[in-house]
Amino acid sequence: MIELNNVTKTFGQTQALQSVTLTCSGGKTTVLIGPSGCGKSTLLRLIIGLTEQDSGTVTFDGVPVAPNNVFSLRRKMGYVIQEGGLFPHLTARRNITVMAGYLKWNADRIEERLDELLELTQFPHDGLDRFPLQLSGGQQQRVSLMRALMLDPSVLLLDEPLGALDPMIRADLQEELKEIFQALKKTVILVTHDIGEACYFGDEVVLLREGTIIQKGTPEDLVFAPVDPFVTHFINAQRSPLENVRAQ
């Protein structure tokens, strides 16, 4: 379980997060959504300790995330960064197993875990020896996901994992990801700016604007019980242009 209590983070003049209080319960998928620059990535980076908050607390299973325990906490969290973050000089296999190797897992254990992940993500075995630049966008995302899952973390943090993919592949991967989440029963925090994606994945959806939480609830709450005109405005702004076609 991850809890943020009254967390504030500023970059110079920019208020990235203002007094954010949020609880992400175990085994559930929480989706962070909001316009670009509203603080979604900053929130994830605080949880995994890539930046430190100015005030407030971030706790992981009741333990405050702090510089002295961040290394051990990170092994319990998997993180897929917005741009993918694959190491271009390492093969897919090394990308996925680099941390297990660093922790001195034996080869059998690594192979076993790798096989599980390949099956889970439907990644072709012969792709493992390719370099990131030799993989398609969808394959790269699978490798990023496998890397995040390698140590079998209890929490998975995904920052716009499908953002860079074209729509067809994106739809396929959405489905797959949802199956994976359901199979793994992990605590998932997923960032997206797409309302459809948010509703598709989210047990709970958190809408942010300029560093503050506007509304937190089920997808239905947001659509049918908006607490602020901004919520409706945000949802409507993303309505499919196809609806207009149908309306005529």
Partner: peptide, 15 residues
């Protein structure tokens, strides 16, 4: 080195 690669290496837990 691009920031996202540097941060990934940090986030996966490497010292």
């Amino acid at each position: 080195i691009p920031l996202h690669i540097r941060e990934s290496s940090e986030a996966i837990g490497l010292s």
